[in-house]
Amino acid sequence: MKIHPSFSIQGRTISFDDLKEVGYSLIKEGEEFEKHIGEFLLDWIDDLPTLSVKTSGSTGAPKTILLKKEQMVNSARATGNYFNLKPGATALLCLPATYIAGKMMLIRAMVLGLNIYLVPPSSYPLEGITDSFDFGAMVPLQVSNSLSKLHQIHKLIIGGAPISNSIREALKGVENSSYETYGMTETITHIAIKPLNDKEVEDATFTVLPNVELTTDDRGCLVINAPEISDETVVTNDVVQMLSKTKFNWLGRLDNVINSGGVKLHPEHIEKVISNYIDTPFFVAGITDNELGQKVVLVVEDAEIKDIQKTIDGISEFKKFEKPKTILIAKEFQRTDSGKIQRSKTLHQILKL
Rank of each mutant, 00 (worst) to 15 (best):
S132K: 14
H269M: 12
I270M: 07
I287E: 06
S123R: 12
R343W: 10
L106N: 03
N259P: 00
A89Y: 13
S148E: 14
S56Q: 03
S8G: 07
I188F: 06
L51Q: 07
P96K: 03
I270S: 03
D307L: 14
F33Q: 01
T207A: 12
I329D: 04
L209Q: 02
F133K: 04
F321S: 09
S344A: 14
M1E: 08
T130N: 12
T246Q: 07
S8T: 05
K319G: 11
S58H: 07
D198H: 14
L19V: 14
G314T: 04
Q152I: 07
F283E: 01
L66G: 05
E21T: 12
L85P: 05
S6N: 15
K247G: 05
E271S: 11
K306H: 13
Q142L: 00
S58T: 08
L141S: 01
L243M: 13
V111S: 01
E291V: 14
A78M: 15
P62S: 07
G252S: 13
L298S: 09
F133H: 06
G60R: 05
G339D: 01
I278V: 15
N259W: 09
S52G: 08
P162S: 10
N259M: 12
K20D: 11
L209F: 04
T59Y: 05
Q334F: 09
I287F: 09
T90C: 03
A97W: 02
I312L: 13
K306Y: 12
P227W: 05
L51G: 03
N197V: 09
K63C: 02
F283S: 03
L26E: 02
A91Q: 06
G113E: 05
L171D: 04
N249T: 08
L147A: 08
V73G: 01
F321N: 15
P324C: 12
K325M: 12
S122E: 04
G286P: 09
S146F: 01
E232L: 12
I188M: 10
E34C: 06
T215S: 15
D289N: 14
A89K: 08
T185M: 00
D313F: 10
K319C: 09
A303F: 12
G252H: 08
N145K: 07
G80M: 11
D17F: 11
K320M: 11
A101M: 01
A192F: 01
C221A: 14
Q241P: 00
I287H: 07
H190S: 03
E29C: 09
G57Y: 04
I9K: 03
V235M: 11
S230Q: 06
T233H: 10
Q349W: 00
F40A: 03
I153W: 03
R219W: 10
I14V: 15
V239L: 09
I107V: 15
R343N: 05
K319N: 13
S260G: 11
E322G: 03
G38K: 02
M184W: 02
D337C: 05
R108M: 09
N81Q: 13
I287L: 10
